[in-house]
């Protein structure tokens, strides 16, 4: 151990490099990325039965009309609880390591997204049945992307972007960008995807078509959480600090 200080005439390059190195270490030690992703994965997977059982479905000869009531019942409180749990976990882990936490802006962003989703969903449910967008015709892709963005899975991605910025966490940023591409451009999270042909009955097919994208999103978040947890363990055998 060093027993005396270094002279005041230190090389500016070295001093600045030391500052960058130390701040980088603090940021890595404050991270608990895997916990955030696992909590969000759990919330996403638990949502599936809510969506399944509270899906209001009316079918006749002309087709089916459905309303995903479970989303409104489940997601606002679930998101608030999830972000509160993540914030508490971050603060406790940082405190155990002898540090303060920098998770509050993320938790606030998460709470704001929960409110935003509730407001958007309620407004859409009240307005669009009597005023269908684009006169009930085909919707442009930008509209579909916007719809997916303000759905819970898109909002989770936005909050993760904030977290990656707070933590200066490049691996999380890469993961989040890939996640956002998946939930905004690839997965039909709000429209539902084709159910397998072996599923019989319109009722079951529609419910399954809504469940499948959520299952994929949940598995992706789960895999991300496991990946970050493993990376943390492998990079810091003495206690795991970097992921």
């Amino acid at each position: 151990m060093t027993t005396d200080s270094v002279s005041t005439g230190d090389d500016p390059h070295r001093l600045l490099a030391d500052v960058r190195d130390l701040t980088g270490r603090v940021r890595r030690d404050q991270r608990l990325t895997w916990v955030a992703l696992l909590v969000l994965a759990a919330v996403t997977l638990v949502a599936i039965p809510f969506d399944w059982f509270f899906l209001k479905l009316d079918c006749d000869d002309s087709g089916c009309v459905f309303a995903r009531r479970g989303m409104l019942y489940y997601w606002p409180p679930a998101l608030l609880l999830a972000y509160a749990a993540i914030a508490v976990s971050y603060v406790r882990a940082a405190r155990e390591r002898g540090l303060g936490a920098r998770v509050l802006p993320y938790a606030i962003t998460g709470a704001v997204t929960a409110v935003l989703f509730t407001a958007a969903y309620t407004a859409a449910a009240a307005y669009f049945p009597s005023n269908p967008p684009f006169d009930g015709g085909p919707m442009p892709f930008w509209w579909i992307v916007l719809d997916r963005l303000i759905a819970p899975w898109g909002l989770i991605g936005l909050a993760l972007l904030v977290l990656s910025h707070l933590e200066r966490n490049v691996p999380l940023l890469v993961f989040t960008l890939a996640y956002l591409v998946l939930v905004l451009l690839v997965l039909p999270t709000t429209e539902g995807m084709s159910a397998p042909a072996w599923v019989s009955g319109t009722n079951a097919q529609i419910r399954l078509s809504m469940a499948l994208p959520q299952l994929i999103v949940g598995v992706v978040l789960l895999a991300g959480g496991i990946g970050f947890a493993r990376a943390r363990r492998s990079s810091s055998p003495a206690g795991g600090r970097s992921a």
């Binding site: 151990m1 060093t2 270094v6 030391d18 701040t23 603090v26 540090l99």
Partner: peptide
């Protein structure tokens, strides 16, 4: 303008608050 004290300030700034033991470990000091 002193390596250790600059390190203390940098860590405290980044961490919001920091415990004595963490500083001792990171700065490798008695």
């Amino acid at each position: 303008h002193q390596r250790v004290r600059l390190g203390i300030l940098a860590i405290a700034h980044e961490a919001r608050r920091v415990e004595f033991g963490y500083l001792r470990t990171q700065l490798d000091l008695t």
